[in-house]
Amino acid sequence: MATLEIRDLHVTVEADNATKEILKGVDLTVKQGETHAIMGPNGSGKSTLAYSLAGHPKYTITSGTVLLDGEDVLAMSVDERARAGLFLAMQYPVEVPGVSVSNFLRTSATAVRGEAPKLRTWVKEVKGAMERLHMDASFAERNVNEGFSGGEKKRHEILQLELLKPKVAILDETDSGLDVDALRIVSEGVNRVRESGEVGTLLITHYTRILRYIKPDHVHVFAGGRIVESGGPELADKLENEGYEAYVKGGPVSGANSKEGAA
């Protein structure tokens, strides 16, 4: 069974000629079939966790370990991590002019699966996945994320999730900027992948809204660069009612993120 184990992860970033520690000892284990929601205020380091796991060059891991089925993820390049089974649905998917969605999806699937998918079944597979996400067929001919609306970008991320079938999916604020209809479509896509029971899901969000559609098994509160409280779905209800105030002001991490925390 696939397991992602994050142990005492510390991450820094260079900003304004200074080194700033963003993650201050993250511990988390995500097993196949489980869904973990990570919730926290702006600036708490949630997205840093997502991008660090995917290997974004902006972030420097200063200590800690990340293992996927016992393999050292931190020793892998970005593409190796993806091929090992990590998937990051990005909050701000990047435009890649001149590269069509269909070309991109096929190149990506070929890389992750280790061989080019058979054309006949592939076309059917993509078409089916797109229909389920209410995406028009013409979408495949557009350039990756170029001129996409916010909702189209997120659907495109989930389309990739469905096609690449990772072991662990990290969804970074996939709900942000979506209206209710788009949120429902995207959530249904995530749920289809979860129902296979073969993926561990790390759902990073600021709001509890998406948790009405995607039910987590575990909820973690993220503040000041680490997990400060963990519980079941009931913890999300508490956050819905009380907000993050207790964690930002009165908690043990007081002042650690005053700049971003105020945003």
Partner: peptide, 29 residues
């Protein structure tokens, strides 16, 4: 840019393949 490279590599595409995709796409028309 590094963000394009990161995005493509985060989908399992090796670096040289990612550059190829982008440059071919750039010149295609």
């Amino acid at each position: 840019d590094d963000e394009q490279l990161f995005y493509l590599m985060a989908r399992g595409i090796p670096e040289h393949e990612a550059r190829r995709l982008v440059v071919r796409g750039f010149f295609a028309e």
